[in-house]
Nucleic acid binder design. Sequence first.
DNA 1: GCGCAAGATGGTAGCGCTGTCAAATACTGG
DNA 2: CCAGTATTTGACAGCGCTACCATCTTGCGC
Lengths: 358, 358
Amino acid sequence: MAERARTATATDAAAAPPRRIRRGRGAVTLAEVAAGAGVAPITVSRAINNPASVSDALRHRIEQAVEALGYVPNRMAGALASARTRVIPVIVPSLANVVFVEVIEGIQETLEAEGYQMLLGSTGYDLATEAALATTLLGWAPPGMLVAGLRHEARTTALLRHAGIPIVEFMETGRAPIDMNVGLSHVRAGAAMAEHLLARGYRRIGFVGLRLHDDYRARQRYDGLRRHLAGRAAVILFDRAGAAGQVGGQQAGWDALPELLAIAPALDALFFANDEMAVGALLRARRDGIDIPGRIAIAGFNGLPIASLTTPALTTIVSPRKQIGREAAAMLLARIAGREPTTRRLDVGFTLAAGGST
Amino acid sequence: MAERARTATATDAAAAPPRRIRRGRGAVTLAEVAAGAGVAPITVSRAINNPASVSDALRHRIEQAVEALGYVPNRMAGALASARTRVIPVIVPSLANVVFVEVIEGIQETLEAEGYQMLLGSTGYDLATEAALATTLLGWAPPGMLVAGLRHEARTTALLRHAGIPIVEFMETGRAPIDMNVGLSHVRAGAAMAEHLLARGYRRIGFVGLRLHDDYRARQRYDGLRRHLAGRAAVILFDRAGAAGQVGGQQAGWDALPELLAIAPALDALFFANDEMAVGALLRARRDGIDIPGRIAIAGFNGLPIASLTTPALTTIVSPRKQIGREAAAMLLARIAGREPTTRRLDVGFTLAAGGST
DNA sequence: GCGCAAGATGGTAGCGCTGTCAAATACTGG
DNA sequence: CCAGTATTTGACAGCGCTACCATCTTGCGC
């Protein structure tokens, strides 16, 4: 401080410039703690970030000063100075969808264990929003980043590719990830359900989704279903309208069931884009006295806990959502730590849980 | 840059100190953009943060340079220099609980509209974790903070109270908030359900929750129930064990129903801590052929969409979750902007949705 | 008791950006 | 064409912290 002042004075000669007062937010700074403890600022920094490198006596004195003054380290200053942050942005389409929430929990759990913090952003299934979000979040100079999905605007891909940090795209597997990828093949999941429905004798199958342009993973399941059934069973796609950012929900399934039965009475099975819709349909069938699977079979996707509690139990495909989150975070942390993860492309797979609904 | 070098040389005389090289993360900086566009750094800063204050020609040139170099502003440097962040931390107990997710959506929506970013932290219903989280998050020098609940450790309360920023505690109403408060009275909600059950003729009522020490809001509903029923009906509390951080779930309700009927066969109504548990119980009743409400009545809390789709429809108390989020965020933003919100204590109320389950 | 290694502490200079004020330029009316 | 004002641009310092290196203690072997 004194040094700085001297230099300034020398520069301005005897001008004695009016000392400008521009305080930060008035919070206690590390320098004040240092003054309080009678040590240099750098020592306080060390005592906080690497306690072992400071003698017991000093560390104790510093801790007392920290306590007494209520010092809270300014992470931004620290991050700026060290060019290191422990904040990792996570971009997902929506929080309204339990599926992402569970993945996030897996991520959170893993990041937290390593002392990292998650910065969450949601796009509402809009790729332009995603691009903007990616830019903003990169501005926090994160050591890595987690993004749901492999589909992005070109500029988002370019931005992330050139950010020079490890990136994990999670949820679905596919070709050409930006960097790393964890998920499952939704196309194969659709095919697996096709095989199941085929085996149980269904031949006129409807796929029911909401806003499939947004929910392109559901669309991939449909593609897998359709291709697998080609020539062996009839498939109809019902891509229903809905509010933006909303790709499921029990109400949607509840509403869909009677409408579809009216439009396409010959259908013998319905594969819903997700369990919530399927459960909605099951509940509707229960209320309206529609026999499941006698009148029509119902299947879902995700393997939510409720799927096994309905009567009949819902046939669904169980995705290891929490595992996706854990693996994605672990892979990222490995790379951040300079280690190479076991693999950069991980397919966590899925299992089909056959219930009484098909 | 040149200025700085000159000063240094003057100080060290002709020592020609070995120019120390400590680059940041190698990202493009504002200074480089400025050089590219042939303007001063501050002008680039202005062009980005307040485009109107720069002439069209320059702005255009700068935009091109930004584009060409792929410049992403370093938010931390900006925040440090201006002592202003647009990141607002939100602390919730858990993301596994839809209820908080919906509140978060309301918050997110409102913050985003004003150009603020949400930094999410979850405590796993642990107050010590909450304290640690609050400290960490304050380190980002946020302009305000949102915290779920009114119960904290003393040090958390002290920390937040002295942080000198507006704080909103949301979810429940109660006395002595740190600063502002938005929510509903869970005690009154419990009383409202008591009144409803009484009106329908139930006199032996069980309250079923999971880890009520963690889920103290559910406990408040129980307290409201118990007090309202005192002398008019018998009340039993079932505080069931469960995994940490987990205070609901359909499975829990599914498991509870037969156990409680076995333990306390004389009960004529069950008020579950939340709709998920209640729905689990309804599904179990459906599978086991237990008549609802004939054998026993079932009620829940939250007003999740599924409550109206079950057969019979679930009697529940609808909490305006998204509204809580919106109001909390709005209140905070008002204070941040220096305006005084209409009120610092907002009770958003609730409504009882009577279904066939009671 | 001395030389030297290891450990503890401190001085200095930025990290990349913006607030403040000053200078330069453009614009207006007479 | 010029003073006077409004607008645009720039120089400078510093936000709070940590990397880097220098310095000062210690402890230890001989």
